[in-house]
Design a binder for these strands. Structure first.
Length: 923
RNA sequence: GCCUGAAUGGUGGAAUCGGUAGACACGAGGGACUUAAAAUCCCUUGGCCAUUGCGGCCGUGUGGGUUCAAGUCCCACUUCAGGUACCA
């Protein structure tokens, strides 16, 4: 009987489905293990061979853990809201739900063929009302909360109201984006509308005026992580900065905890570092600079308080609220012209130009330490969103200030001994201070670090500022002017004040619209919905939530996916706790992986979840690149020349579909049929073949290098695909897909099969296996057990090949060897393992077997081969009985024929043993 | 610019603690079986020299260093990949 993978795989996939083999329930008698893949956005293109890489790796781990006796939660679902389905809907009028469902069906079909051990009863879809009810619910909790900076956690907003009633803002430890202060009397005198406005500055989900990334082409705002280099990540359209009133999440309040807790989780250093940079901790000081001849003052942030003596001007961000306060009438026109110019530049243009620009406000500030007057400028190199949107400029020690000072011919005062600032600024935080002393503060002679500390102390004491920690992390902008997303559970009351819906009214269903475009008046698509009002007629919010809303807590929902009363029950959460192993790409480092951590921490603050971090261990699978093939057309002809002959002609390389190329040899017939203009193609062949060139590129339709897993499964089998994807290299590494190498693993499975079947005869014996066979098997078990824990699946596959080759050579057919072999193979190649498990006479599934342990006894050698080096160089090998002691080994090593050559009569100076093994002789 | 990671045969990659570099596989070459092809099996395969022996020398991006011993550790550099950036 031949190895008929198609039949075997179909048979067992059906069996697993019918027997609910992978269904999992809470079982307090077993330790739990939660293995999660980042759920996919079901795109129209379907899966290519790169997508399942991480899924296969986690599947192996999940299966292994189950064999080790764990109760494994391994679910899958779909991140179903997203722009492509909506863009498609705009073009075709087809409802995005239809497209999405079709794509999901296709994904499911493709995933099923690979034989994953998902518990599909727990599937979630972010666009499913049963699911997004809990996304809306979480939003409501955030709306009703503020962040208490003293407790460092979220608390009900009512507590803040109680505080305001008693003390106003006095002693209020709340994270806010407002600098307003008021007394209890003032609060109590406010109207409800005024109070709502104030509270909005404290809520964790709040409506705020912020600078947003506005993408006119997509007609929506985007979060920072959805923009790269001034272009939208989806579609690559230009993005501009715009002030808009938007829903935001107060992620920045959690910056400290998000940063600190990175030390408690097992993620790669690189992704932790990316998050640290994104959060951007910086410790400095806020300082007040009075404006000359006025009662106003500027608050600035600096990390270089020590350079206070070198401040020669101040700079405000164009959007700074200080601008209007300090511009003098005679500078008004110039300032307005500049602000207008800046406003019309997109972020991208600002970045590309990098030209120094700015304008004088006409006002001067007073340096609080030197008492000198310094001019105040406006320039777009200062960002409104960071610090206070205003800076003290120290041109001698900051390259940006330096460039500005040179351009506007402002003084540059060096503050560090020996620093030459005639050509460029000296930015390093090192050296000895100079020019930095007066009757108030003496820094001369101090190291920079000492000077920073002393200045900070001084400004606190003098009451001109205070020590302050700043984070780069901004609040997440949570509104999208799109249709295909979660509606906000918010309505607007008679005073046009946003109000939360009752939890009992959730889910608020996404309404139908006639078109998926903004309304004529420029409102979001939900503005087209009929009766988009509450039961008592109040209008509902027209924005929808962004893509990351639904993906922020999905790992919690898998724990208890059908619960109608809670996001996740206490019981389920206490049992499953957190994701033990999370597998996915690095592209979510500053998006999903920050938002999820934030969302989880918020829920943690209220005890809705019991772990402070959602994902304990994170593994990032690499990208699979495509291997493109090329044909070479001789210019201005329809003749194609084979790869090794192409240098003799003037040729143009053309991408050719990799599916009509086999091992770099072009199928001429299929090529002629491929595209009409190649119908009459002529070829110049080498050795009767057309050889194509190749290159490693991104896997994409336009490069014609997309390899579809379905084809591989059909031609080689799912087990071969799984093994091959793992064999390709380390899971974390990016590597090219090259179908050419697949013969290796497909041959391995055939040889494995041939161990069991010779022709149609099952060759199984109950004989005691030889010591050799036992050694081969136990070497394998040891190797694979270690490899799985460290994700070294490629070397595991190699170990399987070695073992099967050895057993084949030994003609070993012993059941005692085969049983554990099949179990160890099961995580990697579940279908063939299941089949062979039943061939071995079991009637239960191999998934319920026990992972075997290896026995060191079997691995012992009776004779050990030592490779002995002389002075670490020349080598010879000796065979030594395993039980020989050091003296015996020495004697054998020195009397061996090999030794005589290298000793040449000399006495060895030193003989080095490592762990009882002789490794080197020094002469 | 800053941060992180990487660099090993024709190719993908092994080498877990500093101890036989190149496991395993692809590709290539040779052979067996076959009328032939496919499939399968066997041998060779880092480079150079020697090849009727044995063997020898060189070799893990570059240059130094530590060590009896370095792909692995240290210093300096080059290149590539990813992330990030007027963040004061």
């Amino acid at each position: 009987m031949d190895y008929n993978f198609n039949e075997i795989e179909k048979k067992w996939q059906k069996y697993w489905r019918e027997h609910h083999t992978y269904k999992c329930e809470i079982d307090n008698n077993k330790p739990k293990f939660y293995v999660l893949d980042m759920f996919p956005y079901p795109s129209g293109a379907g899966l290519h061979v790169g997508h399942p890489l991480g899924y296969i790796a986690s599947d192996i781990y999940a299966r292994y853990k189950r064999l080790k006796g764990f109760n494994v939660l391994h679910p899958m679902g779909y991140d179903a809201y997203g722009l492509p389905a909506e863009q498609y809907a705009i073009q075709t009028g087809q409802h995005p739900e239809i497209t999405t469902n079709e794509n999901i069906a296709r994904y499911r079909e493709q995933l099923d063929k690979i034989g994953f051990c998902y518990d599909w009863d727990r599937e979630v879809r972010t666009c499913d009302p049963v699911y997004y009810k809990w996304t809306q619910w979480a939003f409501l909790q955030m709306f009703k909360s503020y962040f208490n900076t003293e407790l460092d956690k979220a608390r009900p907003i009512d507590e803040l109201v109680a505080h305001f009633e008693k003390y106003g803002t006095q002693g209020c430890n709340a994270h806010t984006n407002s600098s307003d202060e008021f007394t209890a009397d003032e609060w109590n005198a406010m109207t409800q509308v005024e109070r709502n406005d104030v509270l909005m500055n404290y809520r964790i989900a709040y409506l705020g005026n912020t600078m947003v990334n506005w993408c006119p082409k997509l007609g929506t705002v985007l979060a920072n992580d959805e923009v790269s280099e001034g272009l939208s990540l989806r579609g690559g359209y230009p993005v501009e900065q715009k002030m808009m009133r938007q829903w935001c999440l107060r992620v920045s309040a959690y910056a400290g905890r998000l940063l600190r807790d990175l030390d408690t989780i097992e993620w790669t250093e690189s992704i932790k570092e990316t998050q640290r940079n994104w959060i951007g901790y910086s410790e400095g000081a806020e300082m007040t600079f009075p404006v000359a001849d006025s009662d106003k003052s500027l608050l600035i942030f600096t990390t270089r308080a020590d350079t206070i003596f070198g401040v020669t001007f101040m700079v405000l961000a164009p959007e700074s609220m200080y601008v209007d306060e300090v511009v003098t009438p005679d500078q008004r026109a110039a300032v307005d012209a500049y602000l207008d110019e800046v406003k019309h530049k997109t972020e991208r243009e600002r970045m590309i130009e990098k030209k120094v620009s700015g304008v004088f406000t006409g006002s001067y500030a007073v340096n609080p330490v030197t008492g000198k007057n310094i001019p105040i400028y406006i320039s777009d190199y200062v960002l409104a969103g960071y610090g206070t949107g205003a800076i003290m400029a120290v041109p001698a020690h900051d390259s940006r200030d330096y460039a500005f000072a040179k351009h506007f011919d402002l003084p540059i005062i060096p503050l560090i001994e020996g620093a030459d600032v005639s050509e460029e600024s000296f930015d390093a935080k090192e050296g000895i201070m100079t020019n930095s002393s007066n009757e108030r503060l003496q820094l001369n002679g101090l190291q920079v670090k000492e000077a920073i500390a002393k200045t900070k102390q001084y400004i606190e004491e003098a009451g001109i500022g205070h020590v302050k920690v700043n984070y780069r992390l901004r609040d997440a902008i949570f509104s999208r002017q799109r249709y295909w997303g979660e509606p906000f559970p918010i309505y607007y009351d008679d005073n046009n004040q946003p109000q939360p819906l009752n939890e009992s009214e959730l889910p608020l269903l996404l309404p139908e619209v006639d078109k998926f475009l903004p309304t004529e008046t420029g409102e979001p698509p939900l503005g087209r919905a009929k009766n988009w009002v509450t039961a008592d007629g109040h209008p509902l919010e027209l924005n929808t939530m962004p893509g990351f809303a639904g993906s922020s807590a999905y790992y919690l929902r898998y724990m208890d996916p059908h619960n109608e009363n809670e996001l996740v029950s206490h019981e389920a959460n206490e049992y499953w706790r957190q994701v033990d192993l999370y597998v996915g790409g690095t592209e979510h480092a500053t998006g999903h992986l920050i938002y999820s951590r934030f969302w989880n921490k918020f829920l943690y603050d209220y005890g809705f979840v019991c772990e402070a971090e959602p994902f304990r261990k994170l593994v990032n699978q690499g990208m699979i690149q495509g291997r493109s093939n090329f044909v070479y057309r001789i210019k201005d002809t329809n003749t194609f020349v084979s790869f090794n002959l192409k240098d003799k002609y003037d040729v143009t390389p053309i991408h050719v579909d990799v599916n009509i190329v086999d091992k770099d040899t072009l199928d001429l017939e299929l090529f002629r049929q491929w595209r009409p203009d190649f119908k009459d193609a002529e070829f110049i062949l080498e050795n009767g073949k057309y050889i194509c060139g190749w290159a490693i590129e991104k896997m994409s339709k336009s490069m014609f290098n997309v390899v579809n897993p379905d084809n591989i499964v059909k031609e080689r089998g799912a087990d071969t695909l799984r093994l091959y994807e793992m064999f390709l290299g380390p899971v974390e590494a990016s590597k090219p897909w090259d179908t050419n190498g697949i013969d290796g693993v497909s041959g391995f499975l055939k040889r494995l099969w041939a161990l069991f079947y010779k022709g149609d005869t099952l060759q199984l014996t109950d004989e005691k296996p030889s010591a050799e066979a036992l050694k081969s098997l136990h070497k394998l078990i040891k190797k694979v057990s270690g490899d799985i824990e460290s994700f070294s699946y490629n070397t595991s596959v190699a170990a399987f090949m070695i073992c099967v080759n050895e057993l084949t050579k030994m003609k070993c057919h012993s059941r005692e060897i085969y049983e554990p072999l099949v179990v160890v193979l099961a995580p990697f190649a579940p279908h063939i393992a299941e089949e062979l498990w039943h061939v071995l006479g079991h009637d239960t599934t191999v998934c319920d077997a026990q992972w075997p342990t290896w026995n060191e006894e079997y691995l012992k050698e009776s004779v050990v081969n030592y490779v002995v080096s002389f002075n670490g160089k020349a080598r010879y090998s000796i065979a030594v009985p395993a039980d020989a002691d050091e003296e015996e080994v020495k004697r054998l090593a020195l009397t061996d024929a090999g030794a005589e050559r290298w000793l040449a009569g000399k006495e060895p100076r030193k003989i080095i043993f490592v762990k009882g093994k002789l490794v080197n002789i020094v002469v």
